[in-house]
């Protein structure tokens, strides 16, 4: 009996984890700081969450499809330096579009590697992570590029609609749009099917490879968006801008509740994860907690949440499911051989 209650409590805790975390951070911040629960703080948390948010949002469909994309940071750096470099050449808005296009292009390369050449996404995107991080440094000779028109990007982080800034508004809209796509359209639901079991999805007539390819391109698009916004709002294109972004983005997605095993997740959960992590970081920073202590807290939180999730959801088989969904086996392979 007691055991049952405990399990139920655990299940509820997992279910409402984002609400619990946000409330906990608000209470902790409010109690420890006089100036935490203000409109300014809220605006700042939302605005700061934007860049990691775009990356995390792009990662969500990839994870739902049972894949992973480690190259988001490198795509972001490439998009940022492209945007800033192209500004004086083709004008501000086309340059921004070019930045996003570079993201899409690299996303397409990832898709090609995973879907056509059948390289495991962990390996393929590790390789493109290395390649494009290296390329960004080579192209810029390791120096950050300075924008020729630093004023253009400033409005992105200016005040806009009470607690928002233009870029955080775009981020929120993107999260909602993605939610609608994933949950309310047939193509969105098909993506979950692909992530749960690619071969089953294929045999029921879903073009699994197409969905996986699309998820990588989408991830590239969002990484491009993140790089473009970041570079414009800081008026600089740094070749290492995205180097530190991968881990926070994955952490945010997972804290939100999207699983690496595929077939489960939501963009609103990612939004919640991004905000919870952002609010926690801000509260700890305002309290002067050193970054390494923050890393300890974040790491523990991640382990705690994922353990709780695992214990509550009970039955195992997750790891084998992971492999099954990651492997997009060609149909009717007699002896499923796990190649990488």
């Amino acid at each position: 009996m007691k055991n049952f209650d405990f399990a139920l409590l655990g299940a509820r805790a997992v279910q409402y984890r984002l609400v619990i975390m946000l409330v906990a951070v608000a209470v902790f911040g409010g109690l420890s700081l006089d100036d935490f629960l203000t409109v300014n703080t809220l605006q700042s948390v939302l605005d700061r969450a934007t860049v990691v948010g775009f990356l995390a949002l792009g990662l969500t469909p990839v994870l739902i499809a049972g894949q992973i994309d480690l190259s988001i940071g490198s795509m972001m750096s490439m998009a940022g330096i492209t945007t800033i470099f192209m500004q004086p050449v083709i004008g501000n808005v086309p340059a921004a579009a070019a930045g996003v296009a570079v993201g899409i292009l690299i996303g397409a390369v990832n898709a090609l590697m995973v879907v056509v050449f059948k390289i495991n996404s962990l390996v393929a995107t590790l390789a493109t992570l290395l390649i494009f991080a290296s390329l960004a440094l080579l192209l810029t000779n390791s120096y950050p590029l300075s924008s020729e028109d630093p004023i253009f990007g400033l409005p992105l982080t200016a005040d806009f609609l009470w607690i928002l800034t233009p870029r955080s508004a775009i981020f929120l809209i993107a999260a909602v749009l993605m939610f609608v796509w994933l949950k309310l359209t047939p193509t969105g639901r098909n993506l979950y099917a692909v992530g749960s079991d690619a071969s089953a999805a294929t045999s029921s007539g879903i073009n699994a490879n197409g969905y996986i390819a699309a998820s990588f391109v989408l991830s590239g698009f969002f990484a491009g968006l993140a790089g473009m916004m970041q570079s414009l709002s800081t008026a600089a294109g740094s070749p290492v801008a995205g180097a530190v972004m991968l881990i926070p983005a994955i952490t945010a997605v997972v804290i939100g509740g999207t699983r690496l095993e595929g077939g489960r997740g939501s963009s609103l959960a990612t939004l919640g994860g991004v905000l919870a992590l952002g609010a926690l970081t801000t509260a700890l920073e305002y309290n002067g907690v050193p970054s390494y202590t923050q890393a300890i807290y974040t790491g523990l939180l991640l382990i705690l949440l994922i353990s709780l999730d695992r214990i509550v959801s009970g039955h195992g088989g997750a790891s084998s499911r992971a492999q099954r969904s990651v492997r997009v086996a060609p149909r009717n392979t007699p002896l499923p051989r796990r190649n990488a």
Partner: peptide
């Protein structure tokens, strides 16, 4: 990039003074 965000955050917090350790030349202008 992180520093630029933190600088914004310090400003919106309305502190009385900011000490900044620039990690590159350009990113803090906004």
């Amino acid at each position: 990039q992180t520093g630029a965000e933190q600088l914004n955050s310090c400003v919106s917090r309305g502190v009385d003074g900011i000490l900044l350790w620039p990690a590159d030349e350009n990113s803090y202008l906004p």
